[in-house]
Nucleic acid binder design. Structure first.
Lengths: 299, 299
DNA sequence: CACACTTACGATATTCGTAAGGATT
DNA sequence: AATCCTTACGAATATCGTAAGTGTG
């Protein structure tokens, strides 16, 4: 038995309209095409489905049975097709993004706003967490993609740079360094330096940069959250070195911001995906909504 | 979007087995055929469904979605196909037969026994009723076919003779006519004659036969049921003229049975169907189980 | 190099349109 | 004569197999 959906569609149209020519019109087909299709279906099933006179087309008992069974099937099929269309057209779906807190707070929200405007039906989950867990989430497939620094070489992950983030110093506006055009790491360490907890990728980058420059960094307070850093600096308890990306989040503290030279410390962040895996269409759309700032204009 | 069931079947096999070649083996197809089919499906949907490396085949997010939606659809389809197969193979179904009581009691049961042996899953409804209602039931489609005498010419019914039934006289074995080789209608009407109710087709046939022969028939008792006729005759209250077909039903009364001549009154009964309508396969099977006795051997 | 998927290409089958045929009102 | 279904035939498309190509472990 070899009955196709097309045959069922044609059969249903003829059964519902009681006419081959009317059904042909509805389906935008020639009338002989229906005649032939129904005939094939009848041959395939080994049973007459319609009794045709020149004036009317009536279902046989077998035709009634097929109509009963087949109509539900076609409805089901069309519902599934529509459902899939919704999914493919990103009117429905779910994207999981794993991102460093700074990227989740700064880079991601405007991209999300653009994405949501186009695809309001797609729900987006943001896992704002640390680099290691981002790698885990993406590699396991629990997250569609990640936004973080370059992943370990050992992992089965692809990386595309999107954001180059340079460290700046922040301090109170009445601080001595506040008016400077730029500062060096040597300048900074003369004051109490507030750094984030050792688990933070920012902290690790600072530590390695200082070690490379032969400078002893004195950690202070080691808070987990960026806002705490801002508040501590705001209270005059010290200065901090932070990636410029995070500065907008500290606007509440009304601080001064000075570029750091000698050396310029940068971190390159971007998109992390599973190697060789196609992202979902919705994930791809969201990725496209994230602007590429990996080549920042340098005056 | 133009996705066929075949494509879904192939897709599902590949998705479940995680391999094109394994799926090809299961489906008894060449492996390139699957490759091409999946590719067509992907093109049709405009989305990648598998990420292929040479070593493994993994579903993408869209593939997962299609698997979720499509598997249910294919299961549904296969269930419907099996259901329809059951129907067409007459393992399931329902046949409604409208038959005169005598045919329902005598001709139909052995035919039903043969039919049920072949098709135990098909339920048969017997409407044992009178000629007019049989015509109504068949013409309206409420019955698949009828077993009765020839229908009115005005009705949209086809008739095929199956049984020629000749009237015989029945009386008690100690009755004067019991030993005769044959009797005439004139012989019969010398005794009290028990006839059935006027609505009965048997009664109508007798009345018209007697009228044609110029014989006055005296109706007695006019019972509705044949068994009552048998019982009345058995009590010596009269004789009766009945179609020979009904005689087996009166065996309980232990009566004598004598052929009637001058004239020989026959009624031809048979199959009544809607003109131009194909009977259901199950009905056709049941019809085939009814033997054709329209040309009875006459010694 | 063996294995698994893809591409290329040709044979067969299916689908659908146009044209002609037959039956009924 | 008009309407409606069927048949016949040809073109476009789809399906599937064989053979050759490509990439990975």
């Amino acid at each position: 038995m070899n009955v196709s959906l097309r045959q069922l569609q044609i059969f249903r149209a003829v059964a519902e309209l009681g006419s081959f020519s009317a059904a042909a019109e509805r389906l935008h087909l020639s009338q002989p095409a229906l005649s032939s299709a129904v005939r094939k279906l009848e041959d395939g099933l080994g049973a007459r489905l319609f009794d045709r006179t020149t004036r009317q087309v009536v279902l046989t008992a077998e035709g009634e049975e097929l109509k009963r069974l087949g109509t539900r099937l076609i409805d089901e099929f069309e519902a599934v097709a529509a459902d899939l269309q919704d999914y493919l057209a990103q009117r429905r779906g779910r994207v999981v993004v794993a991102a460093l807190p700074s990227l989740a707070a700064v880079t991601l929200p405007p991209a999300l706003a653009r994405f949501k405007a186009d695809h309001p039906g797609v729900s987006v989950i943001i896992r704002d967490t640390l680099h290691d867990q981002i790698q885990e989430l993406v590699e396991s497939g629990a997250a569609d993609f990640g936004l973080t620094v370059a992943p370990d070489k050992t992992r089965d992950l692809e990386f595309r740079p999107l954001i180059v983030d340079r460290f700046v110093m922040i301090c109170r506006k009445d601080h001595r360094l506040a008016a400077r055009q730029s500062v060096t790491w040597a300048d900074i360490v003369r004051y109490p330096v507030i750094t984030m907890a050792r688990t933070s990728s920012v902290r690790q980058l600072i530590d390695s940069a200082c070690a490379a420059a032969g400078i002893e960094s004195q950690s202070q307070y080691d808070p987990e959250h960026l806002a705490t850093v801002g508040a501590l600096v705001s209270q005059g308890l010290g200065v901090a070195a932070l990636p410029s990306l995070t500065i907008p989040l500290l606007r509440f503290a009304d601080l001064a911001e000075v570029p750091i030279r000698k050396p310029v410390v940068e971190r390159t962040m971007g998109l992390v995906q599973r190697r060789g895996r196609t992202p979902s269409v919705a994930a791809a759309s969201l990725i496209r909504a994230i602007p590429d700032r990996s080549q920042p204009e340098r005056p």
